[in-house]
Design a protein around this nucleic acid. Structure first.
Length: 285
DNA sequence: TTCAGTAAATGCGACACACG
DNA sequence: CGTGTGTCGCATTTACTGAA
């Protein structure tokens, strides 16, 4: 059986050379397939979900317990990834509904995360980086451009760069995307709005479209075996009103209390990630 | 170009606090 | 006293820097 860690290292070695490349898509798939093969042999344990309408479970190995996995979003059939690849290879706007795409991508991310949870100790960084690779590649693939990871921020007195997860420039007179990628944000989400504000100040409001992609906001109490979501919806509304405007906030596992923000003032569009593929071209309008 | 040493960034469990 | 919110700090990895 292929070793997921080896597959990950291979991806890591090649990723930046050409983010949008088909090769990266293959390497991402290798990590996913090796992880899912590993997890197929692992035990699972149901968790008590305190999130209305969502069921969660965890993988176990010995004394170790993985992070929470959303039951509805996790698909065990590896054919789904193949189907997704076929769809995005055939057409720029894949012929596949948003919910199905969301589930496939969620599964790719979750399977490697759980592999890391069960085989390593205290490693938060690797899953976060893998998620960046996954989403960064998919954005680049869909937009047809490779990203930058830091932007010059200029004024009269200094020259500095703002480290960002990914920035996509589609060229003169076309859209620019500011893409932070996070596994979860909790209170640190403020950084996303702060960066957007800086970009507005330096390049002009509206030049960069802020489209963060976040996996989930769940937190597992491993002692009690319970899952909750850590959300700050009122804070979000204040940031969106008074700091900067984000165009979209994409989630793989969309928290219920953030989904409700779509219906209230100020305008704050929170959607499952799968929608990005269909709407990417119309976001600038 | 390679490599060692250092600094920064990551996500999440642990914690603190307010409230009914 | 349990429950829900919000905040802090840690182990680890990755990015950066400068020397050979």
């Amino acid at each position: 059986m292929a070793d997921p860690l080896k597959a990950y290292q291979e991806l890591q070695k090649n990723f930046l050379a050409d983010v949008k490349s088909e090769r990266n898509q293959v390497l991402l798939g290798n990590v996913y397939e090796a992880s899912i093969a590993y997890l197929a042999k692992a035990q699972t344990k149901p968790l008590r979900s305190l999130v209305p309408g969502k069921a969660y479970f965890a993988f176990t190995s010995g004394r170790k317990l993985s992070r929470a996995v959303n039951q509805r979003l996790f698909v065990r059939e590896t054919d789904e990834w193949k189907a997704f690849r076929k769809a995005v290879t055939a057409k720029r706007v894949p012929d596949m509904d948003a919910d199905r795409i969301t589930r496939i991508i969620y599964t790719v991310a979750a399977s490697f995360f759980c592999f890391v949870d069960l085989t390593k100790e205290g490693d938060q960084k690797t899953p976060g980086t893998f998620f960046e690779y996954l989403i960064g590649h998919l954005f680049a693939w869909r937009l047809g451009v490779n990203p930058k990871t830091r932007l010059p921020v200029l004024n009269l007195d200094m020259e500095a760069t703002l480290p960002t997860d990914f920035v996509f420039d589609l060229g003169p007179d076309r859209a620019k995307f500011h893409l932070p990628v996070k596994v979860s944000t909790r209170e640190r989400v403020i950084q996303v709005w702060a960066h957007q504000r800086v970009l507005n100040g330096v390049y002009g409001t509206g030049r960069f479209l802020g489209t963060p992609v976040i996996l989930t906001e769940t937190k597992t109490d491993k002692k009690k075996g319970e899952v909750i979501e850590i959300c700050l919806p009122d804070q979000w509304r204040i940031y969106q009103m008074h700091i900067a405007q984000l165009k979209r906030i994409y989630y793989l596992d969309l928290p219920a209390s953030y989904a409700r923000l779509n219906e209230v003032f100020p305008p704050l569009s929170v959607k499952p990630f799968g929608h990005f593929f269909a709407e990417a071209d119309t976001l600038p309008t």
